[in-house]
Design a binder for these strands. Sequence first.
DNA 1: GTCTATACACAGATAGAC
DNA 2: GTCTATCTGTGTATAGAC
Lengths: 253, 253
Amino acid sequence: MDFSEFQKYVDGSKEELYQKTFSENQKNIRVKNEKTAVKNLEKICCAALKISNRKGYHSMTMRDLSRETGLSAGALYAYFSSKEDLLGMLQRQGRALVRKVLEKHVCGKGSAAEKLRTAVRIHLYISEIMQPWFYFSYMETKNLGEKERKTAIESELETEKMFYDILIQGESEKVFFPRNHLLSAAIIKSVLQEWYLKRWKYAKRNISVEQYAEHVIAFIEAYYRVPEHFPGQGMPFTSECCRPSSCSEGRDG
Amino acid sequence: MDFSEFQKYVDGSKEELYQKTFSENQKNIRVKNEKTAVKNLEKICCAALKISNRKGYHSMTMRDLSRETGLSAGALYAYFSSKEDLLGMLQRQGRALVRKVLEKHVCGKGSAAEKLRTAVRIHLYISEIMQPWFYFSYMETKNLGEKERKTAIESELETEKMFYDILIQGESEKVFFPRNHLLSAAIIKSVLQEWYLKRWKYAKRNISVEQYAEHVIAFIEAYYRVPEHFPGQGMPFTSECCRPSSCSEGRDG
DNA sequence: GTCTATACACAGATAGAC
DNA sequence: GTCTATCTGTGTATAGAC
């Protein structure tokens, strides 16, 4: 699946996204007319992401948001109960969409090699389309409340685990060389983050998301490619030496 | 050079760092006694980084800073003219130290392969020691004023260029395979950033900076290693001169 | 140099008219 | 549903005593 095809698929579910946001936050939304609410929720969310990406969520004032949406401060508070509430709403909304897309496109069958390529591509594609949200989510995680922050971190680790599992599968299929897969998964994720965190840089250099994806995939595959000839020593596929040394807990930093 | 050796070297220049901060910001510092100023500047800078890393610079109040340093709000303003001024001071201070360290340890002579390993290691080592500053600098760049922000971004691109140059050199030495070096340099930098941005994760997993460095180096070298056997099509150079100097990686843990 | 007390600006949030 | 006007808390920064 190439990017433009993927984009069409995601664009189609935008309406549905805000309907879901509406119904899942009705507790805090005073507006009852769904059509109105959906329309304004979209305005509010987009504006909040836009402003936050420029100056940070905390620095965004309700007056900023009011100006950008064309709604008065009073009206805004009909859609959320507090600024903190809006932050949580934004986080949950994006996370739900991302998870849905990933589950639909990445999960399930196929060889490890295929899955790896798909997972990288789909991650990059979705982060390209939802760049403002990804950037926002990354930057504002530490400003969330205790509970919401934990959820956000778990969700990040889930992504990492998805790559970890693919690498493990590849090793057992004997198409990926044994490595410290946990560390590799973390590195892969960081490279995917680079795409949406430094979006401006790649725009300036005219690097497309597909070019970037190809490069990343080639990078990973080179590291995991099984050498054709081993020097005499120990056989990699039977050795335990490449397992992560200790996954047990340490202190929190 | 291993990490603990490097640490000793950097620790030694801490006093000097704050003296420099003092003299370079005298315009905004009302305190004239150098000894007092240096002592308090250190307290202030460390406290500001600590609080900012937890909740963001903007969310840090002068009352927070006052509590953490043990100095009153009034006293704090004897060391900087405004909160924004303090932000700039922190950014400049760290950047100067980082640049000095990199120039001293990375620049100059050696094969591309050696330089690559050194550059990765030194970057990781310095970011390990100055983790709070690196994290802070990354997260707060967008909150800087126009002029300071530009400087910060330039400094980031400088780092990227350093890796770019090494890769170019490696290609011309025929020990690195021809690739999109600009893209690779960006990816390398993102992987180095991962280390200080997600420090807590690696602490929890008991991954040391040296383990991480080895893994990263192996990753890059795998991608840049010149294949021993080429399939028929035209290839950039013959296999004789393509001996990568170290194939000894692989066993993490 | 450092303190306490305070000014004053601005942000988040609400009330009540339309 | 949305507006304008306004309350109240909090944050930066300063004044002036010690």
